[in-house]
Design a protein around this nucleic acid. Structure first.
Lengths: 221, 221
DNA sequence: AGCTAAGTTGACATCGACGTCAATGTCAAC
DNA sequence: GTTGACATTGACGTCGATGTCAACTTAGCT
């Protein structure tokens, strides 16, 4: 079939490389796709440019991916895990001895720092992700899932703090988790994607402080 | 010129209606555009459908708007003011007598309620706005401006509270304002645009509580 | 009625991104 | 060195949304 393909994949079956050569080609195409997407955005990206950037013929692209949308989905699938994994790297700096509340605040701070660092190193990709989310249901679902995982972790942490008596028991852990995640997400997205200039240290410190205080944890001025 | 028009307007000059008839046509087209956009999203929307929905000929569209992007910008320009104006309607319910802090919290709550209500009544439009923001620089600028205004208001409010000694003086008002706005924006956007089902009352209450506590204002359990 | 400017119309040309496919190349196994 | 399955190539046709334009309609004015 021809032009303008709404949303999704085409007639061509996915195709899985069998050879080493094939695997390399696919990998090159995927890398090229990422380059082009990051440079031009999803909408302006042309399949032609991707093939070219991969040093491959136009047709080769369709051997491994059914459409522009298809590569993007593959890209997301193969990248997101790494991203969120890199954030989960916990227990770096040894937790300081202190009151349980202080330890909790320190953990929040560390998590925020990791998040900002990750976002900083993948700004273009995150912007892309945000963009495609607005019109591709499948990518939206992936994003939703990622967020859900994130929120879930935060929620558990809040509930734990409630059990420990550090956070008011009548706080709605689910909605609070959502809101706090939205706060960090939104603030970081704003500064990195939309604005550009900002003091990372000041931002993280403020985020941590707001987060901690919102939960009713004591904060050292 | 021809197909796929990246970003912006075309050769055709804008065109301003002189007659009553013309003004009506333009208005009908704009309304139709909104309908179609809300139904299909920006990308899937076809200029043809807009003309049709307006009961006009295809050509008429181009008499008043240079391109799909152009109508959208016009739509945003003519709508945003109303939206944010509707939110600024303050002083509805009489502020309760109470401590200054209680009054402050009440104000925050009212603002959050207004925001959620506005978002609820214009969900489709807000989603659209978010979508186009990711690829049209001009719309992005408008969104940025709207946000800036919002943040500015919050920031002033925080600074006032600091002057009154209700909020710690060493809190970074600018970053805090950004973060809190992001929190409310993000949470509401998530529930209304991405998820769907949620308890509005529970959400607003939690948002207000987090906001107030984040600033160190006392909250009645 | 006659005139004119503004508005309206819709068939048509244009264009460029997409996806196909027949031909050609590669390489490991026999 | 021959074979054949897998991979690569790139010129080509298709398609449909966009934007143009010359003819036509409307309505205000004299």
């Amino acid at each position: 079939m021809p032009a303008a393909d709404p949303s999704a994949g085409t007639t061509a079956p996915p195709a899985v490389p069998t050879t080493e050569r094939g695997r390399r080609m696919r990998a090159r195409l995927l890398a090229a796709a990422r380059e082009v997407f990051e440079r031009d955005g999803f909408l302006e990206a042309r399949v032609t440019d991707i093939s070219a950037a991969a040093g491959a013929a136009h047709g080769s692209f369709y051997t491994y991916f059914g459409s522009k949308t298809a590569v993007f989905r593959a890209l997301v699938a193969e990248t997101m895990d790494d991203l969120y994994a890199s954030m989960a790297t916990r227990g770096e700096a040894g937790p300081p001895d202190g009151s349980p509340a202080e330890v909790a605040v320190h953990r929040i701070d560390q998590a925020n720092r990791r998040f900002v660092a990750m976002y900083r190193q993948n700004t273009a990709l995150m912007a892309l992700f945000e963009q495609v989310t607005t019109f591709d249901p499948e990518v939206r679902a992936q994003r939703q899932a990622a967020r859900e995982r994130n929120v879930g972790r935060v929620r558990h942490s809040i509930e734990q703090l409630q059990r420990d008596g550090l956070v008011a028991a009548d706080l709605d852990a689910e909605y609070a988790a959502h809101a706090l995640v939205a706060m960090v997400n939104g603030a970081v997205h704003y500064w990195l994607v939309l604005d550009g200039e900002f003091e990372e240290e000041r931002l993280v410190a403020t985020l941590t402080r707001l987060w901690a205080q919102a939960l009713g944890l004591p904060v050292r001025s």
